[in-house]
């Protein structure tokens, strides 16, 4: 087993209202950032997971997202490539 770090981005699904994104975009526009077209605010999570391979790490984190980390009603998630960490269990 090795320790992998899997970063996860969780973002509001397309078409789902994102009140936070809208409020932040409005505030930035009023500060003069008038090139903003849209802002969506989500969450960024890193999961360190023990797995036999990068593929296993990804698959474990995917199932965590489906079960708990993301709310499938309103959120999508994107898994980034796992990176090997120091200190994994052997």
């Amino acid at each position: 087993m090795q320790l992998y770090r899997v970063p996860v981005q969780i973002i509001p699904r397309p078409g789902i209202l994102d009140p936070q994104g809208a409020a932040v975009a409005g505030a930035l526009r009023s500060l003069g950032f008038d090139t903003i077209a849209d802002i969506r605010v989500g969450r960024f999570i890193t999961v360190d997971v023990n797995a036999a391979s990068a593929a296993d790490a990804t698959s474990a984190v995917r199932s965590m997202c489906e079960k708990l980390l993301a709310n499938p009603v309103i959120e999508d998630f994107v898994l980034e490539e796992p990176t090997l960490q120091q200190g994994g269990q052997s």
């Binding site: 789902i16 209202l17 009140p19 409020a23």
Partner: peptide, 12 residues
């Protein structure tokens, strides 16, 4: 049919 659920914005 989950995608039908609306999101509330108490600020608005």
């Amino acid at each position: 049919k989950r995608p039908r659920v609306q999101v509330g914005d108490p600020f608005t």
